[in-house]
Computed example of a mutant assay.
Amino acid sequence: MKTGRVSAPISLVIALTLAGCSSDPEPAPPPPERVRLNVTAPSDNAIVRDASVRLTGRVTPSNAEVRVLGEDVSVEQGRFEATVPLDVGANVVDVLASQGRRRPAMAAIRITRQVPVKVPELQGVSADEARDRLAGLGLRPRIEEGGSILDDLLPIDAVVCTTSPEAGTEVEGGTEVEVVVSKIC
């Protein structure tokens, strides 16, 4: 086995390599700032009656791109607006803002569209027909048996005698309507 000195060029390479390892690396650039998004109208959990709603908001930076329900909307000086169609009942409207390498921002606004419904005239129809007609209007029927002991003896079918709320009353969709059926009204 041969021992000896390390030659100068090799020791110089090792010294420079170790010196390079001990130096501080350059700091990583900070991550890009997040896009800021603020939906100003309508408020979250808004209840409306119209078939559409005007959604407005602000975004920073002012040249960010904004999408509402997946569709591009124009942004002018950091402000945007869009007309959003609504289904009857619960709706969720998503808004996405992005710009270059910045982290995007997203908001989801819940809007309920309520449509008033008139309780139909049901007097004299069967319980099944009343149930179907009310459900078809988005109302919740609750069928109650009325009448007296004579109802058990009569060979005729029970029909609607009354409703609560009464026929013609305007109520919100999803309202429960009590339907009283009997063989003799």
Rank of each mutant, 00 (worst) to 15 (best):
V75N: 04
L96R: 11
E76N: 13
S74M: 08
E71I: 12
V93C: 05
S98N: 07
Q123H: 10
V125Y: 06
Q99I: 01
V84Y: 06
V95F: 01
E121F: 09
V93M: 02
R79H: 08
E71A: 14
V117P: 01
R103P: 09
E65A: 09
D94P: 01
Q114T: 14
V119R: 00
A64R: 00
V119H: 03
A105E: 03
D87N: 15
A97S: 05
D87V: 15
G100F: 09
P120D: 09
A107V: 07
L69E: 06
R103L: 09
V95G: 07
R67Y: 02
V88R: 09
A90C: 06
P120Q: 05
G124W: 14
A64E: 04
V92R: 14
T83H: 14
G70T: 05
A82C: 07
A97W: 03
R67A: 07
G70S: 06
I109Q: 01
A108P: 01
D94V: 10
V92F: 10
A105T: 06
F80V: 02
L69A: 14
R103T: 12
L96E: 12
G78P: 07
S126M: 03
I111S: 08
G100E: 03
V84P: 02
Q123L: 06
E121D: 13
I111W: 02
V115R: 15
E76M: 08
E65P: 00
L86Y: 13
E71Q: 14
